[in-house]
Design a protein around this nucleic acid. Structure first.
Length: 308
DNA sequence: TGTGGACCTGCGTT
DNA sequence: GAACGCAGGTCCA
């Protein structure tokens, strides 16, 4: 669809909804910049992002999180995992170890998001051996170059995350040029071809299966190893027990579990072992614990742990 | 089963 | 201001 065929809107004309999530239960700044999502920006006291084909604007007033969305029908409560009892869980977790207690105190209101699984598949497949600023650039460039236009709002055009079909059809020089994917262009194209043969039902079917099976079957896709599969399980399929173990989390795991992890490097076996140790210590929402520990490690708050 | 190197860039540090 | 190491990995020897 050409960009002039979509509606021209104003934020002042869109209806406002509200959720009972104050700053202690949801901190947009931390949640949107901690590396689980890459399309949210602060704009004049609010945050604007594009998620699952919806343009969303949100801000907080006292104990409430207010939001607007276009097209209508965006389920913000689901996106923010609002039925997860963050306060109760955090209270129970503080006694597990001082490191998680510190991370919980440092970043109150950090929430794990439940995002569109197809977007998560491609986002984290291209996030390999990269860092948050670069992933942000790649994701936004892909949307700008290949995403379907949704609407103009207050003079700005917003585009959806590209479909698998659009990624498959994209010329190489566009993926490696303006989008700066580098070697990931090949990975994304292979993955898009593989995914297009199966379709969205393949992902939604996995969401209904046990975590271990979903995690195993996701790795049948080219370019999806254990870490990307766990990102998809946690951020896209809603498995709170999924623990993505990246380089930061691996350092945290070695500090926490020491000699229980037999190898210096992260192998397939120690990846499974580390995930199980996280789940033993932090329970069925170990993925939430990982997100707090990961963010604390990334911002240098766990230096004492890594040095052990 | 564990290890090491290649793969593209750009950010942050020195 | 330029050089260098390394980054939310995966895949293949």
């Amino acid at each position: 669809m050409p960009s002039d065929a979509v509606p021209h809107l104003r934020w002042t004309d869109l209806p406002v909804a509200a959720l009972p999530l104050g700053p202690d239960l949801f901190d947009p700044a931390v949640t949107f910049t901690c590396g689980q999502t890459f399309r949210w920006e602060p704009v004049e006291g609010a945050w604007i992002g594009v998620a699952g084909g919806h343009i969303v604007r949100l801000w907080q007033e006292g104990r409430w999180t207010c939001s607007q969305a276009y097209p209508p029908g965006f389920d913000l409560a689901r996106y923010l995992w609002a039925d997860f009892d963050l306060a109760g869980w955090a209270a129970a977790m503080r006694s597990r170890d001082p490191w998680l207690a510190m991370a919980l105190a440092a970043f109150p209101g950090l929430r794990v998001l439940r995002q569109d699984p197809e977007e998560m598949l491609f986002t984290f497949a291209l996030a390999t051996a990269s860092h948050v600023p670069r992933i942000t650039h790649m994701v936004r460039s892909l949307a700008a170059q290949l995403g379907a236009p949704i609407a103009w709002i207050d003079g700005r055009l917003y585009r959806a995350f590209p479909t698998a079909e659009a990624l498959l059809a994209a010329p190489d020089d566009l993926l490696t040029g303006p989008c700066n994917l580098g070697y990931r262009a090949r990975v994304i194209r292979r993955l898009a071809a593989w995914y297009c043969e199966r379709g969205r039902a393949w992902l939604s079917d996995l969401a209904a299966r046990p975590y271990a099976e979903a995690h195993r079957r996701l790795q049948e896709a080219p370019g999806v190893g254990p870490k990307v599969a766990d990102c998809l399980c946690l951020f896209g399929l809603g498995f709170a027990e999924a623990v993505p173990i990246d380089a930061q989390t691996w350092k945290v795991a070695r500090g926490l579990f020491g000699s229980a992890l037999p190898t210096r490097t992260l192998t397939a076996r120690t990846y499974r072992l580390a995930g199980d140790l996280f789940r033993q210590r932090y329970g069925p929402a170990a993925g939430w614990a990982q997100e707090y520990l990961y963010h604390a490690a990334r911002t240098g708050r766990l230096a004492g742990l890594a040095a052990r």
